[in-house]
């Protein structure tokens, strides 16, 4: 019997080491353990290289499509919207599932809900079966770190593992499994404190630590 297939579409404009790629690969890895043949595509690169049709063909031939993307201004980034605008369902394969993973730099995972809703509405309009959306906050805390070794994201790894088992059985992802991944990675106070410190430290590299409040367009 032919293996079931899963493709990960990365919506981050960063070509390497993005949080979206890192977190998406975590779920894809668990699907591979469940026997899925897996593939990865970067949407930004596909658009730049004129390979959108190739990616659409792959999506249309996959049993599961995972879209992992950062939150950009309360929605998905523009290149990913371009891809969704260009997408054509060839309707040859039925019962295709779509999963969304949205991560953001806000500590509250619910701030990603609007972006997940865009992905859900895309799936409904294009005859995918919406298998569920993961909303993950504190994206700045895990970045490109090894998620298998991190205790901080243990609950996300467990959630993805349980999701992969659901999907391998042909089921949708349980609500409690989705909710487990949305739990805070750390306290809001600690995340905000280290976040603020991080911006200062980064600005020192450019000698801008006293210029962070600049208002170049003020009249």
């Amino acid at each position: 019997m032919q293996n079931k297939t899963a493709i990960l579409l990365i919506g981050s404009p960063k070509p390497f080491k993005s949080s979206s790629e890192n977190i998406g690969k975590l779920l894809l890895g668990y699907l591979a353990k469940e026997g899925f043949a897996t593939d990865i595509e970067h949407i930004g690169m596909a658009i730049r290289e004129g390979a959108v049709d190739k990616v659409i063909h792959k999506v249309n031939n996959s049993d599961i499509t995972i879209i992992s993307t950062p939150l950009f201004v309360d929605s998905i980034p523009a290149p990913l919207i371009s891809f969704l605008e260009l997408y054509q369902n060839d309707k040859q394969k039925t019962n295709k599932k779509l999963i969304g993973i949205v991560n953001s730099g806000f500590p509250e995972s619910f701030q990603n809900d609007t972006a997940i809703e865009v992905l859900r509405l895309f799936s409904i309009h294009n005859d995918f079966y919406w298998a569920g959306g993961f909303t993950i906050g504190c994206g700045g805390a895990f970045g490109s770190m090894d998620l298998h070794k991190s205790k901080m994201v243990k609950h996300i790894a467990e959630s993805f593992q349980e999701a992969a088992i659901c999907l391998s059985k042909g089921d949708t992802i349980l609500k409690e499994v989705l909710e487990k991944a949305s739990k805070p990675i750390m306290s809001t106070f600690i995340y905000v404190f280290f976040g603020q410190l991080g911006w200062y430290l980064q600005s020192i590299k450019y000698h801008n630590q006293f210029n962070l409040k600049a208002r170049p367009y003020a009249k």
């Binding site: 950009f72 201004v73 919207i81 969704l84 605008e85 609007t114 865009v118 895309f122 309009h125 905000v192």
Partner: peptide, 25 residues
Amino acid sequence: IVYGGYSSYLKIMLDRIIPLISPFF
């Protein structure tokens, strides 16, 4: 309205407005 959100023509500009706010929370 593109799947409940904005067109890519609008969003490519909106993705570039973050300099208008501060990095601090």
